[in-house]
Design a protein around this nucleic acid. Structure first.
Length: 402
DNA sequence: AGTCCACAGGAAGGGCAGGCGA
DNA sequence: TCGCCTGCCCTTCCTGTGGACT
């Protein structure tokens, strides 16, 4: 066994063509020195946050645009530049970045404020204190240092989904509690309609300034990819058609630069693994399938056990060639499986929520339909390819053994 | 027009775990 | 140790929904 592994490692070192110069450059979290096609947004952001360098509170900013349009990258870039500038002078500015989608980090009011405190280098228990105390601790820290704090709340829509917008309202009013420090919020969202669902008071406080990040077009994506490929790949490895292909595929998905980078990187990894001499269009196609497949498999593996049983039940019904699978059908199979495996069955109300959650992951598609006097229910379909379905069944069969 | 079905989904609250401070 | 706090998962109870059926 270990000999085999050593052989693989040895072959990798000796035979494989060197593909990557810097693999990180082909990931979305890499911070390049320049950000192409976002000058306008960067300049606007910079001018909005600049007053903080003189101790003023910048306006709250609301940034929106689809995934992979450079919102986070630009916000972080501006944050870093601002702190650098501040270190050279007054040292007044502190930029705190939080991704609100991170579970166990910023999915409750308590955790969010606790995370801000941790980012300031102080310790706070993960639970146990009244939320009011956690807020007070945060206020004391920044007030004692007289900072201007800019809080970047990435994916702020998920926060509102979980906690409602009253929290955001309180948060935009933090400054009334502070004596010397000042806080500005930079909210980022992929959801273009997010601002419309907010309470008007929250809306006006959060979006004192608004900034839209439009999708990249295919040519702009090509520029971005060329720029990253120069840093990330050895120059002989890329065939000419690869970058336009990645850009075109990502442009179809609303100009998502993240997707374009993933395609390029994974195509490179495939070539590296197979010790092939060049990345071609064919590898981009394989990469596209692989990314989708891996995403589904990973999300299935991480599902809680009850949700796995619900998914397993749905697959059973699909395999029985059942048309129009409904919530009640899934629940019936689910109950039987619970009996069989000795698992405690949850109520139908709860299963209804689990089906919604599965719908959100994209593994199934659950559409609400009304069947007249036969009631109102969800019509459930699997939304994965046949090979992915087989793989999911293998995972579930393995995980749900009695 | 009224009834009915099979849920969807909101609200309230229970029970437990993890943690803090007195 | 005890009381209190938060988070999380879940149940119970309830109202709402919309189209077929009577």
């Amino acid at each position: 066994m270990s000999r085999n592994i050593q052989t693989i490692f040895q072959e990798f070192i000796t035979k494989s063509t060197p593909v990557f110069k810097n693999r990180d450059a082909l990931t979305s979290h890499f911070a390049p020195e320049t950000i192409p096609h976002r000058n306008e947004q960067i300049n606007t952001l910079a001018s909005i946050v600049a007053p903080s360098l003189k101790g003023g509170r910048p306006s709250n900013i609301f940034i929106y645009g689809l995934t992979g349009t450079g919102k986070t990258l630009c916000a972080k870039y501006i944050g870093e530049e601002l702190e650098k500038m501040s270190h050279q002078g007054t040292n007044l500015v502190k930029v705190l970045y939080i991704n609100c989608k991170m579970k166990k980090v910023a999915d409750t009011e308590y955790r969010l404020v606790a995370e801000l405190i941790r980012l300031l280098g102080e310790d706070i228990p993960a639970t146990g204190l009244p939320t009011e105390t956690v807020y007070q601790t945060f206020f004391n820290i920044i007030d004692s240092r007289e900072w201007v704090v800019i809080v970047i709340l990435d994916e702020v829509d998920t926060l509102v989904e979980k906690m409602g917008d009253s929290f955001l309202y309180n948060f935009t009013r933090i400054n009334q509690e502070l004596k010397k420090a000042k806080v500005a919020i930079m909210g980022i969202t992929n959801d273009l309609h997010f601002i419309d669902i907010l309470d008007p008071r929250v809306k006006s406080s959060l979006s004192e300034e608004e900034l839209l990040f439009p999708p990249y077009n295919a040519l702009e994506l090509q520029d971005i990819l060329k720029h990253r490929a120069e840093i990330g790949f050895h120059n002989y490895i890329l065939s000419e058609e690869v970058i336009p292909k990645c850009a075109a595929l990502a442009a179809q998905e609303h100009g998502d630069a993240r997707r374009a980078l993933d395609l390029l990187r994974v195509a490179g990894e495939i070539v590296e693994r197979n010790s092939e001499p060049k990345i071609t269009e064919k590898h981009v196609d394989i990469a596209q399938d692989k990314i989708d497949y891996d995403r589904i498999v990973e999300s299935v593996k991480s599902l809680p056990k009850q949700t796995k049983v619900v998914l397993w039940s749905t697959i059973q019904l699909v395999d029985q060639k059942r048309e129009d699978i409904q919530t009640g059908d899934v629940y019936g199979i689910y109950e039987n499986k619970c009996k069989e495996t000795g698992l405690y069955p949850l109520t139908q109300r709860r299963i209804s929520d689990l089906i919604s959650e599965l719908d959100m992951t994209g593994i199934i598609n659950a559409k609400i339909v009304s069947l007249g006097r036969y009631g109102r229910t969800r019509e459930i379909k699997l939304s994965v390819s046949q090979p992915a379905k087989e793989k999911i069944r293998d995972i579930l069969d393995h995980d749900l053994v009695i």
